[in-house]
Design a protein around this nucleic acid. Structure first.
Lengths: 138, 138
DNA sequence: ATCCTACAATGGACTTTGTCTAAGTCAAGT
DNA sequence: ACTTGACTTAGACAAAGTCCATTGTAGGAT
């Protein structure tokens, strides 16, 4: 079932057919869809859903902290439903495949005070780039 | 003087007024301009330079490995001339200011084999997010 | 069960960012 | 100075995303 949907419901989020469909489409592991991909899949389940609604809904999920935006490639933003479990991304430079990974260590401690310029740091994002086995063998 | 310009010249890059202007505009520390910002500043020095040329020139500098593309926010790509010295970025979530930072440690060693999914990893990109002193006091 | 109302969805115009092309221009070697 | 292939240009085009006035509806109140 939909973990994401459960979490959203639990926050008293007003439920509509459109929001349910977006949440369903997005739920799962190693899911990193663009807004347009989400829209395409949502339309398959609910033909009259509009693009603007998909954008709005994704934006709200991000604001609620239940979904994370990922900008791995230079193209569209992607949406990752696993906001609850901290993780980083591994991206194939050729085909764009994304995997969730869980590195050891804490990158926050790698940044000395002298390199913080007075910033209050709240978050670190790490992206590993390389070639996936599939592309390497081709 | 222009470090970037020197490096490009040293590679036998064909020099034109337009390319010189783009290189000059981009040169320096903590410089992270968008393509349109580069264009605006280039126009100030060379009014007839076109947008397409700025895009082309930036793209070539990236291909040559002399400039790095950075996608910190959800908006336009930014161009960083300090490709020779490895560094990461610290971004203010409010105003978007970017600083170059040099963390200790190597994030590559933080990713165990079991988390590599058979990928050959070539690069790691780390982005620290937070609030800059300026925005914090406001 | 029905009514109300604030919140949500719609769709189409608009903006921003970036790419492409055909034609003209120019840097650099001879 | 000539030639040539690389560079530049303007503007059309495309993709990704935002905005807004209008219409619809979820969910609490009656």
């Amino acid at each position: 079932m939909s973990d994401l949907l459960e979490r959203l419901r639990g926050r008293g989020w007003r439920m509509t057919a459109q929001r349910r469909v977006v949440a369903e489409v997005l739920d799962g592991d190693h899911i990193h869809l663009t807004a347009d991909e989400v829209h395409a899949r949502a339309v398959a389940k609910l033909p009259e859903i509009s693009r603007a609604t998909v954008y709005n809904t994704l934006g709200e999920m991000v604001s609620l902290g239940e979904v994370v935006e990922v900008s791995t490639d230079r193209r569209a933003k992607r949406y990752d439903p696993n906001a609850h479990r901290p993780h980083q991304h591994l991206v194939c430079a050729q085909c764009g495949t994304i995997r969730d990974v869980h590195p050891t260590g804490n990158p926050l401690t790698d940044l000395p005070d002298s390199e913080r310029f007075g910033f209050t740091i709240s978050d670190v994002e790490v992206t590993y780039r390389g070639t996936c086995p599939n592309c390497a063998s081709a």
